[in-house]
Design a protein around this nucleic acid. Structure first.
Lengths: 338, 338
DNA sequence: AGGTGAGTGTACAACGTTGTAGGATGGCCG
DNA sequence: CGGCCATCCTACAACGTTGTACACTCACCT
């Protein structure tokens, strides 16, 4: 159906290779030949067959992005940023959802499922640090997220510890002394929860405030409902606190709702800060203070590093670990008058 | 680098076609031959080259999805549902973002940009009904959304008018008589805003309540901030109302925030309903009543119809217009005690 | 006049796969 | 025993593209 090089060549009275040369901007073509070809191309509405091209070149111009779920705002905004970054570099993005399920994640790494792509941006949730050897794959892979460190591949991530420390320090600077945490994962050391909790503890230590385990609310998932439930448990436990650090914005928003239902004023009675800088936090009541983890930078860097690996071939440059710069965003939920 | 049919054939001592036959489950192969081939395949870690396969077959197994932005929750949840639906049918999804910009939308339709795909799910925002002739493209295309009706392609959509009428009727049934609207688009007839506004008017008419133009708050974009701004304008205008219909959830959530800042109680002073059934509405304060437009059904149907068109070839079945079933979701924001 | 080299174009092969046509083997029937 | 069919396998061509090698035409220099 669609026109091919052959059709164009016939129409222009040249060889198919000449048409190919015109398309690929080869230098030495007479102006009139070129014009004849260009006219034939537009007349026939020719556009190159990318399957053939990629068979020939071994490249597809498509990268894969594996995330848990797009319905989680964080990953939707990440995917948005990555698609934009990829587009700037002439790449398309094919998205794969894992549900944060370890088996599905491993399957993506092992299987030939993810073909038609030149490389993969991989944001695991179910896998843990002990799974890092599974990242030894034969295709270019850039790791995202906070589940695995020191793995065999390039890794683009955020400054979890440092920025969590800054978030906590911010609350302490406002005069708060009993900072509750919403969203801890029990016994986790590596992972968003573990790292951010460490930053929290560092900030306490620096301020000379003892760590009180009773202030940490645990949960498994980081959905809004979990933030609400965890906060309700904290309130029920009777522990006293004057500030809350939600380990992500979604948790913080869920927690805020429960605080308000309980008649507590934010930030007057309880100051709140989240983590992620979701769009949503700009429009909540009150607006949510948060950490901007540098999502745009992460997306841009990840795509760039992946593209480098793709074109590099086998040059075994050692894996890089890159941290994006974070930024504290102060909004109403932590702005204490006086 | 990667093993090919040739390598496997050599290792198993058969022709490449036999290997191909094994892979494609051809009937007549002796058991021992088959076993030798299977062993060679797993030994060499062979997996088929999809570029070559798709060059040969003319199919890629990938469909495109063009949406305005994934950072808009509605489209993130739509993309999530579509990826899941596609996976059930063995298809992968390549996502393209248009920013809701008409020029970008037209570019996607005309350009060969979107290659490597067998067809396109297209959710325009910038295009209008007069642009519908641009949908006459040479590849399988299924239209989504409410911008264009009666176009030349299959179209999967929601029952905008009917469900908006139900939403309004719900508020009226709660005894409200002055229902404000947030998010109208001036002079729009076709499009989410225009259609839902028509449903709103139909409900009023059925209830014998005159339409008061002063109750309609207009905006251009449907972001949270627009909901807030529009609601503030309504309040400033001094017009009286006892209920609000947000033409989508995001608008409704933005509006709720302003209502609460103004000291109004929801639902006691003002009942609120939205549209879309975003996850978010389940966790807002109060939780948001809304219309579930049948997103899962839309995703599933759209992928199915597209796949039919892809495999059908040129059978010029007339375009179908399919409406998903909606559902009214009653939550706190419209639950009036007494 | 012959040689050189840059410019312009072509033929052929190859990327890895699968459809088509047909060859080889063996069993069964008349 | 010849013929026929079913089973199993192979050689070849083709999908549309681009790299390689080479052929031809001029100008220009020696």
């Amino acid at each position: 159906m669609a026109a091919t090089l052959k059709d164009v060549a016939r129409a222009a009275g040249v060889s198919i290779k000449t048409v190919s040369n015109v398309i690929n901007d080869y230098q030495h073509i007479r102006a009139d030949t070129k014009q004849r070809v260009v006219e034939a191309i537009s007349e026939l509405g020719y556009s190159p067959n990318l399957s053939a091209r990629s068979l020939r070149s071994g490249k597809t111009g498509v990268i894969g992005l594996a995330v848990p779920e797009l319905s989680l705002s964080y990953f939707a905004e990440l995917a948005d940023a990555i698609i934009k970054a990829a587009e700037r570099r002439g790449l398309k993005v094919l998205i794969e959802q894992t549900s944060g399920d370890r088996d599905r994640e491993l399957e993506i790494l092992s299987g030939p499922r993810l073909q038609m792509t030149d490389g993969l941006l991989f944001s695991p949730l179910g896998m843990s640090n002990e799974d890092s050897h599974h990242l030894n794959v034969t295709f270019p892979l850039v790791l995202l997220g906070e589940r695995i460190f020191g793995g065999p591949t390039d890794h683009v991530t955020m400054s979890n510890v440092e920025s969590a420390r800054a978030a906590t320090a911010h609350l302490l600077a406002k005069g708060r002394r009993r900072v509750a945490v919403v969203g801890g994962h029990r016994d986790e050391v590596i992972g968003s929860a573990g790292l951010r909790l460490r930053g929290y503890q560092q900030a306490l230590e620096e301020a000379g405030i003892p760590f009180d385990p009773a202030l940490v609310g645990y949960t498994t998932l980081w959905h809004r409902s979990n933030g609400a439930t965890t906060m309700r448990e904290l309130l029920d436990s009777g522990v006293e606190f004057d500030a809350v650090f939600g380990l992500n914005d979604t948790l913080a928003l869920g927690a805020m709702r429960v605080l308000q239902e309980a008649g507590l004023r934010i930030p007057d009675d309880v100051a709140v800060i989240g983590f992620d800088d979701l769009d949503e936090g700009q429009y909540s009541l009150p607006t949510l203070s948060t950490i901007d983890p540098g999502r745009a930078e992460i997306a841009d860097t990840a795509v760039r590093v992946l593209q480098e690996r793709i074109s590099e071939g086998d040059a075994d440059r050692p894996p890089r670990e890159i941290e994006a710069r974070f930024r504290l965003v102060e909004r109403e939920s932590s702005q204490v008058a006086g």
